[in-house]
Amino acid sequence: MNSILEVNHLVGGYSRQNDVLHDISFEIKPGELVGLVGLNGAGKSTTIKHILGLLQPHSGDINLNGVGIKENMEHYRRQIAYVPETPELYEHLTLKEHLSLSAMAYGIDKSDFERRVEDLAVRFRMEKRLNWFPGQFSKGMKQKVMIMCAFLVNPSLYVVDEPFVGLDPIGIQSFLDLMIEMKEKGCGILMSTHILSTAEQYCDRFIILHDGKCVVQGKLEEIKEKYGKRHATLHDIYVAIAKGDTAWIH
């Protein structure tokens, strides 16, 4: 099966003089939910920025369904939906307008749009707030707007950065349900998170970053086997790596 996302030997960061990421390689196949975990500053957000095409790789390449962003920006971006760590909205547009612009930009037709807005608004309990401005929203509601925009547009890859912060339990559940539905449709999802218990439950594979390097990746079972303790949780492994106990990896 062809991969949706391929990251090959990516070296990158914010300036050429200072590499933040060192030779990172991984791929995401259709129907896979991949967890990207690591401490603050491990390079998760930088990796995500490279995948979104907001940063230029210093070396290595990133392909989405076999196409790089340089070859066709429009086509590349069309296939990604992104939920950022901190919600950013247009202060002067209503929720409905946010959704409309996303749908238009990603080429969703009008009747399809109306139907899906209805569904998303009900799932996130925002049906009465479609004509509200972001100034009236709490942080969690703003995060819901970002999630709704992302799940409106039919991409092949979802990139979600710390999606649970500020969401209420209903919001978290609806978000997880949507991710599962999209997986079943054959989408790939890359999710960066610190909520390890949820990640453990939902992610098919993990990529653990530490100091800009991909220290270990694979299914949780495989990682546990490598670590040598079958009853270890993702949390134990994560803490071990963070404390410098990395001898078992090599």
Binding site: E74, Y76, I80, P87, L101
Partner: peptide
């Protein structure tokens, strides 16, 4: 400035 995660990501030239 427009939100990077929205306007910055739209697949529009």
């Amino acid at each position: 400035p427009v939100p990077q995660a929205l306007a910055g990501m739209y697949p529009i030239t």
